[in-house]
Design a protein around this nucleic acid. Structure first.
Lengths: 174, 174
DNA sequence: AACTACGTTCAGTTTGCACTGAACGACAAT
DNA sequence: ATTGTCGTTCAGTGCAAACTGAACGTAGTT
């Protein structure tokens, strides 16, 4: 991280920016994502102009490979967007300022995907359970019904969370 | 995982339970937590009676150490609760059936903690920024104000999310 | 064509973390 | 006291994933 100190007028401002970038890295790391992705976004968020891959890599002191993959992930969440600079082959990126859209396509998007895969798993369990219910119909055991009831409640909970994620009220609250 | 097959009447029902337990493990693992924690909760959730550590460990085929730490984590989220069985020294646990409370103290609780630590970091950045603003007051540079504005917007976003997490409407939606 | 400056990819490395096994302390029973 | 059965703890292990470095493909430049 050296060029930042060159571009910024006061060392105090540079210190604040570095603190912010570091905080972003710690935050994303605490959520299981790496620390690079948070640093990249924080840097782009504070940058007054779009930056290219090499600038980001040099600024953060990480490899260009990390920045390449990270930027594409951020782009898929519409957290950063591609920007073309006239007569320059390089790819420049700038941070998305609309946090709401970022949250929708980023956090909520991945959350919805996980809910979908969980739904598939639950459906498989229910088909297996249907076999069990069918074969124990003559015996009429108690335990089967208890398990069936628990599984049904789990599905209801899943549906409730799913509904919450797609609730327009949630969008309105942001 | 062998005792389950012994306690359950039909092999189909046991298969459904195992599928459910496995699904729970996959789900928690997809969220960065291990797979054991999801399996433990799923097992306790389907179990008609409270289980002790050794039973859980043997059922899932994991070490008792994992179960010990995992159960305490689940307990801190009030996802499982301690149950005493008369004239038995062992600690028994059963699953919490109230998913709402579980979600509040589990997911939202840890989320709130992360927001708090992020808030501390943001405050540190702002004090550093205050120094920069003070020292650049005479110069009155443009860049400092831009960065200050961006940081302020970041703080506003943080406050918004914080407010959403503590919004009683969110509780009502669950 | 040769050369350079891009971005991407992939094998290799390292770091972090879930999980284990053994040792330990507590406590009850004999 | 001693033995046995609990639960917890901690150093060690294995593995997954972040990150790196070099090679590659591509496109513009001379």
């Amino acid at each position: 991280m050296k060029s930042l100190a060159e571009h910024v007028e006061s060392p105090e401002l540079a210190a604040a920016c570095l603190q912010f970038i570091e905080s972003g890295g710690h935050t994303t790391q605490s959520f299981g994502l790496g620390q690079v992705i948070g640093q990249v976004f924080a840097l782009l968020y504070l940058s007054p102009r779009p930056l290219c891959l090499d600038e980001i890599a040099e600024e953060l002191g990480v490899s260009k490979a990390s920045v390449s993959t990270t930027v594409r992930q951020l782009e898929s969440w519409s957290a950063v967007k591609h920007v073309w600079v006239k007569s320059d082959r390089r790819d420049f990126y700038e941070a998305e300022t609309d946090f709401k859209a970022m949250l929708r396509q980023g956090v909520l998007g991945t959350l919805r995907k996980k809910m979908d895969t969980a739904a598939v798993r639950l459906e498989n369990v229910e088909t297996t359970l249907a076999d069990a219910l069918e074969k124990s119909a003559q015996t009429g055991r108690e335990e089967t019904k208890v398990v069936a009831e628990r599984l049904q409640r789990a599905r209801q909970f899943h549906a409730k969370i799913n509904g919450l994620l797609n609730n327009p009220l949630l969008d309105h609250l942001l």
